[in-house]
Amino acid sequence: MTTFKLIINGKTLKGEITIEAVDAAEAEKIFKQYANDNGIDGEWTYDDATKTFTVTE
């Protein structure tokens, strides 16, 4: 398992979430479901060097 981080730069929600996932594809699926569940819709980026996803509304 690898640790992945999501940085949320939303209009109403900001913060960071860290999860353990098998790979970046699994982490992205989990993070996008979390964002969808919380009404966050924005532009996604991923930095493989730091294993960090960012979503900006």
Rank of each mutant, 00 (worst) to 15 (best):
M1Q: 11
M1S: 13
M1L: 10
M1R: 01
M1N: 07
M1A: 06
M1F: 06
M1Y: 15
T2Q: 10
T2Y: 13
T2I: 05
T2E: 13
T2K: 03
T2D: 10
T2V: 15
T2C: 02
T2R: 11
T3C: 02
T3Y: 15
T3N: 09
T3I: 13
T3R: 09
T3A: 07
T3K: 04
T3E: 09
F4N: 00
F4A: 01
F4W: 06
F4H: 05
F4G: 00
K5W: 15
K5Q: 07
K5L: 14
K5H: 12
K5G: 04
K5T: 07
K5R: 10
L6M: 14
L6C: 02
L6V: 04
L6A: 06
L6Y: 02
L6N: 01
L6T: 01
I7R: 13
I7S: 05
I7P: 00
I7H: 08
I7M: 11
I7F: 05
I7D: 05
I8Y: 15
I8M: 11
I8G: 03
I8D: 01
I8W: 10
I8H: 13
I8E: 01
I8N: 03
I8C: 03
N9R: 10
N9A: 05
N9D: 09
N9Y: 08
N9W: 11
G10P: 07
G10I: 14
G10V: 09
G10L: 12
G10A: 13
G10N: 12
K11S: 03
K11T: 11
K11C: 07
K11H: 02
T12F: 07
T12C: 06
T12Q: 05
T12N: 15
T12Y: 08
T12S: 10
L13N: 08
L13G: 09
L13C: 02
L13F: 13
L13V: 05
K14D: 05
K14M: 08
K14N: 13
K14A: 05
K14H: 14
G15C: 04
G15E: 06
G15T: 08
G15Y: 08
G15K: 15
G15Q: 08
G15W: 09
G15R: 15
G15A: 13
E16G: 04
E16T: 15
E16K: 04
E16Q: 12
E16Y: 12
I17Y: 09
I17V: 11
I17L: 08
I17K: 12
I17D: 02
I17H: 12
T18S: 07
T18Q: 08
T18H: 05
T18A: 13
T18K: 06
T18W: 12
T18R: 08
I19H: 04
I19L: 06
I19K: 12
I19P: 00
I19R: 01
I19E: 06
E20G: 04
E20Y: 04
E20M: 05
E20N: 05
E20R: 01
A21R: 06
A21W: 03
A21M: 10
A21G: 02
A21T: 04
A21E: 02
A21C: 03
A21H: 06
A21P: 00
A21S: 08
V22R: 04
V22E: 06
V22W: 12
V22K: 03
V22S: 12
V22A: 14
D23W: 04
D23F: 09
D23R: 02
D23K: 11
D23G: 15
D23C: 02
D23A: 10
D23S: 06
A24V: 14
A24D: 07
A24Y: 12
A25W: 05
A25Q: 10
A25I: 02
A25G: 08
A25H: 11
A25F: 13
E26Y: 15
E26P: 05
E26M: 13
E26L: 05
E26G: 13
E26D: 14
E26N: 06
E26V: 06
E26S: 13
A27V: 07
A27M: 01
A27L: 00
A27Q: 00
A27Y: 00
E28G: 15
E28Y: 12
E28T: 12
E28I: 13
E28F: 14
E28C: 03
K29E: 02
K29W: 04
K29M: 11
K29D: 08
K29A: 05
I30R: 09
I30L: 08
I30N: 04
I30D: 05
I30E: 03
I30Q: 07
I30V: 13
F31G: 15
F31Q: 00
F31A: 10
F31C: 01
K32C: 02
K32Q: 07
K32N: 05
K32A: 05
K32M: 04
K32H: 11
Q33N: 02
Q33I: 14
Q33T: 11
Q33F: 09
Q33E: 04
Y34D: 01
Y34W: 07
Y34V: 08
Y34N: 04
Y34R: 10
Y34M: 14
Y34A: 04
A35E: 01
A35V: 10
A35H: 01
A35N: 07
A35R: 07
A35Y: 01
N36T: 11
N36P: 02
N36D: 03
N36G: 15
N36R: 11
N36K: 13
D37G: 15
D37P: 02
D37T: 14
D37M: 14
D37V: 11
D37L: 11
N38E: 06
N38I: 04
N38R: 15
N38W: 06
N38L: 05
N38P: 01
G39Q: 15
G39V: 10
G39R: 12
G39L: 06
G39M: 15
I40E: 03
I40W: 11
I40A: 07
I40R: 02
I40K: 05
I40T: 05
I40F: 09
D41M: 05
D41F: 09
D41N: 14
D41K: 05
G42R: 01
G42P: 02
G42S: 04
G42L: 03
G42C: 01
G42T: 02
G42F: 01
E43I: 07
E43Q: 07
E43G: 13
E43L: 15
E43V: 13
W44D: 00
W44E: 00
W44K: 00
W44L: 08
W44R: 01
W44T: 01
W44C: 01
W44P: 01
W44Q: 01
W44S: 01
T45N: 10
T45D: 04
T45R: 10
T45H: 06
T45Q: 14
T45Y: 03
Y46A: 01
Y46L: 11
Y46N: 01
Y46F: 09
Y46V: 02
Y46H: 05
Y46K: 12
Y46M: 06
D47V: 08
D47F: 05
D47A: 11
D47H: 08
D47G: 15
D47Q: 08
D47L: 10
D47T: 04
D47S: 08
D47M: 04
D48W: 05
D48A: 12
A49N: 09
A49C: 02
A49F: 10
A49M: 06
A49D: 13
T50G: 09
T50F: 06
T50M: 09
T50N: 08
T50C: 02
T50V: 04
T50A: 15
K51M: 07
K51F: 08
K51Y: 09
K51S: 09
K51N: 09
K51C: 03
K51R: 07
K51I: 09
K51T: 09
T52W: 11
T52V: 08
T52L: 11
T52H: 14
T52Q: 11
T52K: 07
T52P: 00
T52F: 15
T52A: 10
F53C: 01
F53G: 00
F53K: 00
F53E: 00
F53A: 01
F53D: 00
T54E: 08
T54N: 05
T54K: 07
T54W: 03
V55E: 00
V55A: 05
V55Q: 01
V55R: 00
V55T: 08
T56I: 06
T56C: 03
T56Q: 08
T56L: 14
T56P: 01
E57P: 09
E57Q: 15
E57I: 10
E57G: 09
E57Y: 11
